[in-house]
Computed example of a mutant assay.
Amino acid sequence: MTAAPEEKHHNESYSALVWRRLRRSFTGMMGLVLVGLLIVIAVFADFLSPVDPKATGVAFAPPQAISFTDRDGNFAFPPRSYPIRETEELDPITFQPVVGPDYDNPQVLGFFVEGAPYRLFGLIPADRHLFGTTDGTAIHLLGTDKFGRDVLSRALHGSRISLMIALVVVSIITVVGTTVGMMSGYFGGRFDAWTQRFVELVLAFPQLPLYLALTSLIPVTAPTNVFLAFVIIVMSALGWAQMSREVRGKTLALARIDYVRAAMAIGASDRRIILQHILPNVMSHVIVAVTLAIPSVVLLESFLGFLGFAVKPPLISWGLMLQDTANYSVIGSYPWLLAPVGFVLVTVFAFNALGDGLRDAIDPY
């Protein structure tokens, strides 16, 4: 008799176990896909935008519909749309020129068409867009704003600034909060006491009035990059304390575990213990906290941008676009200006769903 072949057992790594658990979570995988889609949109916004976001046209033009029929109702392919043109009539409520579709000049739509020139990744000159009109005219699938700029293209470009602010702020919060929290929990004693009093002082400030007060200190004539950097610094300075408090609590529990005490007994340095034993064990909590902190920063940036305290033109962000909806009559007459709200909602849902899935995958108990 021949002996049965021995079965090979492969030990899964921690990351493989986390991935296997995450794949079982429908909401977690949905959040992961949406986050990946948002990153692709932010990176390739120029290619995905059908129109130059700074180009002007008909103000408050409604969204254009895509039709597979011609003017007579016959089937037409490729699909087409009809540009919006101003008429000589005035709206009796808004006193704006009445606009409507121009059926005499249909726009034929296509993929990978030529359009406004741009630089891919800021380096490679290109003029191809994912979709648009074959004759190079502008199409506004989500309408235009008060200056006649395409809402869809501006929303796609606005994802860059909104997500960039969120990622930079959360990165600073994570590094500072994790470092301060681990050092405070590990060293303890007087250092821990004074550090926590300072953390409590930061947490005690009413954040919204302080945001408005600090951002109003910078002059309106300051360069856009300076204003953006100041906003990032203010958000980071007021956001690290909560992360520090959470990491400190985890560190206090880890510092009493046997392998940490054994490392202290054999004379391991404090730096080695913090980096080799404590940091890897708090990273699971930090990763989940990061995914849950990003949507909070996106909402905060949108709110401050709506109030005019975040991003200044010529930069584009979702909050800055929402400034046009400050008037109730504008929302009632031009509801398509609320399109950036949809992008904010999708972003918040994506990161929250991913964070919830990661929380269950990293710590199933």
Results as ranks from 00 to 15, higher is better:
residue 1 M to H: 14
residue 1 M to C: 14
residue 3 A to N: 13
residue 3 A to T: 15
residue 3 A to D: 13
residue 4 A to V: 13
residue 7 E to K: 14
residue 8 K to I: 15
residue 11 N to I: 14
residue 11 N to T: 14
residue 13 S to E: 11
residue 15 S to K: 11
residue 17 L to V: 10
residue 21 R to K: 08
residue 23 R to G: 02
residue 26 F to Y: 07
residue 28 G to Q: 05
residue 29 M to D: 05
residue 38 L to Q: 08
residue 41 I to H: 00
residue 43 V to E: 02
residue 45 A to N: 00
residue 53 P to T: 09
residue 54 K to I: 11
residue 58 V to N: 05
residue 60 F to G: 08
residue 62 P to D: 13
residue 66 I to V: 15
residue 78 P to E: 07
residue 80 R to Q: 04
residue 86 E to H: 02
residue 87 T to E: 02
residue 89 E to W: 12
residue 93 I to A: 12
residue 96 Q to P: 02
residue 102 D to N: 10
residue 104 D to G: 13
residue 104 D to Y: 12
residue 105 N to E: 13
residue 109 L to R: 05
residue 110 G to A: 04
residue 112 F to P: 05
residue 112 F to K: 09
residue 113 V to E: 05
residue 114 E to C: 04
residue 115 G to K: 07
residue 119 R to C: 05
residue 120 L to V: 08
residue 121 F to K: 11
residue 126 A to M: 15
residue 135 D to I: 03
residue 136 G to M: 04
residue 138 A to N: 10
residue 139 I to L: 07
residue 142 L to E: 03
residue 143 G to H: 04
residue 144 T to P: 00
residue 147 F to N: 15
residue 150 D to E: 01
residue 153 S to C: 00
residue 153 S to L: 01
residue 154 R to K: 10
residue 155 A to N: 11
residue 156 L to V: 07
residue 160 R to G: 01
residue 164 M to G: 15
residue 164 M to D: 11
residue 174 T to N: 03
residue 176 V to P: 10
residue 177 G to N: 03
residue 180 V to G: 00
residue 182 M to Y: 01
residue 183 M to D: 08
residue 183 M to I: 15
residue 186 Y to M: 00
residue 191 F to G: 05
residue 192 D to Y: 00
residue 196 Q to I: 08
residue 197 R to G: 09
residue 199 V to G: 02
residue 203 L to G: 04
residue 204 A to I: 11
residue 207 Q to Y: 11
residue 213 A to C: 03
residue 214 L to Q: 08
residue 214 L to F: 12
residue 218 I to M: 03
residue 227 F to Y: 14
residue 228 L to E: 03
residue 231 V to H: 07
residue 232 I to F: 10
residue 234 V to Q: 01
residue 235 M to S: 12
residue 239 G to P: 01
residue 243 M to S: 13
residue 249 G to P: 07
residue 249 G to I: 09
residue 250 K to L: 15
residue 252 L to A: 14
residue 253 A to G: 12
residue 255 A to F: 09
residue 257 I to R: 15
residue 262 A to L: 11
residue 263 A to D: 09
residue 265 A to D: 03
residue 265 A to M: 11
residue 266 I to Y: 06
residue 266 I to D: 06
residue 268 A to C: 10
residue 269 S to K: 00
residue 271 R to D: 11
residue 274 I to M: 15
residue 276 Q to P: 06
residue 276 Q to C: 13
residue 278 I to L: 10
residue 279 L to A: 08
residue 279 L to Y: 05
residue 284 S to C: 05
residue 288 V to N: 12
residue 288 V to K: 11
residue 290 V to A: 07
residue 291 T to P: 02
residue 292 L to K: 10
residue 293 A to G: 04
residue 297 V to H: 10
residue 298 V to D: 02
residue 307 L to D: 09
residue 310 A to N: 04
residue 310 A to F: 02
residue 311 V to G: 08
residue 311 V to P: 03
residue 313 P to T: 04
residue 322 L to K: 06
residue 324 D to C: 06
residue 325 T to V: 15
residue 327 N to V: 13
residue 329 S to W: 11
residue 335 P to S: 12
residue 336 W to M: 08
residue 336 W to H: 15
residue 337 L to T: 02
residue 337 L to N: 02
residue 339 A to E: 02
residue 340 P to Q: 02
residue 340 P to L: 03
residue 343 F to E: 04
residue 343 F to V: 08
residue 345 L to P: 12
residue 345 L to A: 15
residue 346 V to F: 06
residue 347 T to C: 14
residue 347 T to M: 08
residue 356 D to N: 06
residue 357 G to M: 01
residue 357 G to V: 00
residue 359 R to M: 10
residue 362 I to S: 00
residue 363 D to E: 14
residue 364 P to Y: 12
